[in-house]
């Protein structure tokens, strides 16, 4: 059994799997697909497909150059965030069962993560400053050099939200717990923008989602 790749979009036809939902049974050879078969994703014909492993074109070069992550690269807290990210993705795909399974894994990894020793306000502030003064800029330069537009977009949001976090911490440092007394704490459930005030913003100023995407944190 072989796999054939669409040279245009990278879709892979797997002979072993077929496409049962489109009436192509498991185990159907590529050569046995009807002549009018088109790529289910982009619609080009059979002659735009190549046997996987035998082509040197861009799509396959991209495939082999794709970064392959490994479990050892990540801490338990990072694995928790990867799992909660995937849970959100599956929720958006309307797959509640799979989403719940990733939520459970995210909770598991979070529970067993080693706590930071002596967590403190100052330690948090120093990490925020390192992100703003060093890490975000460095990451952005590398993302730009490799023309990674998705990463650059994430970094734009990241820098803005990190600045908001810094401003919250600074105000807290100056006024203590009391500075929050007359305010609600709202957070944008998409990008993490924190808003302290009476009324939820009509739109997130960072990622532009409407007010109903905001959550209220605790009760004053």
């Amino acid at each position: 059994m072989n796999q054939y790749i669409c040279k245009l979009c990278g879709y892979i036809y797997d002979e072993a799997a077929g496409i049962p939902e489109s009436g192509i049974p498991v185990g159907t050879r590529f050569s046995d697909l009807p002549e009018d078969f088109v790529c289910p994703l982009c619609g080009v014909g059979k002659d735009e497909f190549a046997l996987l492993g035998e082509t040197t074109d861009q799509v396959e070069q991209d495939l082999s150059a794709d970064h392959k992550p490994s479990l050892d690269d990540y801490s338990d807290m990072q694995l928790s965030a990867i799992c909660s990210n995937l849970a959100r993705g599956l929720e958006l795909q309307y797959k509640p069962v799979e989403s719940a399974l990733f939520r459970d894994l995210a909770a598991y990894y979070k529970d067993r993560a080693v706590p930071v020793s002596e967590p403190s306000f100052d330690k948090l502030m120093s990490l925020v400053d390192r992100d703003l003064n060093e890490l975000i800029g460095k990451t952005n330069e590398i993302a730009k050099a490799h023309e990674d537009h998705g990463a650059q977009r994430a970094l734009v949001w990241n820098e803005k939200v990190t600045k908001i976090v810094k401003s919250c911490l600074t105000r807290y440092q100056a006024g203590g717990e009391a500075f929050l007394d007359d305010k609600n704490v709202y957070i944008c459930s998409i990008c993490g923008f924190i808003f302290l005030g009476d009324k939820v913003p009509e739109m997130c100023p960072i990622c532009k989602v409407p007010s109903w995407k905001f959550d209220t944190v605790g009760k004053r």
């Binding site: 970064h67 992550p69 990072q78 965030a81 990867i82 909660s84 990210n85 995937l86 959100r88 993705g89 599956l90 795909q93 797959k95 799979e98 990733f102 948090l124 990674d148 998705g150 990463a151 977009r153 994430a154 949001w157 990241n158 939200v161 990190t162 908001i164 976090v165 919250c168 911490l169 807290y172 717990e177 929050l180 704490v185 957070i187 944008c188 459930s189 998409i190 990008c191 993490g192 923008f193 924190i194 944190v217 605790g218 004053r220």
Partner: peptide, 27 residues
């Protein structure tokens, strides 16, 4: 307090966005 909870959540959301753009976009 609420600020700690909000900052923890903001960092989780930023962490999710970063790992999504660093190899874990599609489940």
């Amino acid at each position: 307090g609420r600020l700690g909870a909000a900052i923890a959540r903001a960092n989780r959301l930023m962490a999710e966005d970063l790992n999504r753009e660093a190899g874990f976009m599609l489940p």
